[in-house]
Amino acid sequence: MSVSPVSPVRSLPRFGGFSLGMIALELRRMLRNKRTVIFTLIMPAAFFLLFGSSAEYRTQRVGDGNVTGYILISMAVYGAMLATTSGGAMVSIERAAGWSRQLRLTPLKPLAYVAVKLVIAMIIGAVSVAVAFLVGSLAGAELPVHAWIGCGLLAWVCSLVFAAFGLFMGYLLPSENVMQILGPVLAVLSFAGGLFVPVDELGSTFATIATFTPVYGVGEIARYPLVQDGNLWVAVLNVVFWTALFSAGAMWRFRRDTARV
């Protein structure tokens, strides 16, 4: 095999380098990371089994399902959130390793790179929700069909806010262990946003504060098809606000990053 002396035809890739081939390779790499797999796929399902699958919860009813189903949705949201955050936060590791700089020596456009990261984050988020729901369906979660579908889709789509959060943090924190910081942060936010314990069980002051935290809206929206109750517009406003804020933050850091190098 040899290179012909004739200069090759040179052209730019389509879509700034955004391609299925890159997404496939990046997914494979992410699934190779045991920590990612444990945190995003195994842990939410394990939390669900620990906290949501008792006999008592299986018999208690919520809407047209049981409490086990209700907790399953919360855990699916938690998993999707972890998955999309770590997907976005990949940029932090890649910047620390100098990989972003290496990518500057290819035709890949910075915006295409961010788009790939978002797609990866959302794919892993979808797998996380699917795994949680599969385990839930086998472990006694009962939901009406429309809630299985609706809650699952909403948990997934709304986790976009955390993909933006992960990207923002990924650009903000140039650390190899960014998820070790973000993991506990997400756990605290999940408590504050009523994902682990319903907010109204924590007193009215806390319940009011909770509505302003970024996890609250996603949880409320994702559970809505089951409970069909609560301040949906507050939840929507919450998700829109935090998505806008995190996206703006990510764009701001991204611009600085591309200008500097």
Partner: peptide, 14 residues
């Protein structure tokens, strides 16, 4: 366009 490429000193690998 791939007219120029480089081997950098350190980093740049995952």
């Amino acid at each position: 366009l791939g007219l120029v490429s480089a081997v950098m000193q350190t980093g740049g690998l995952l």
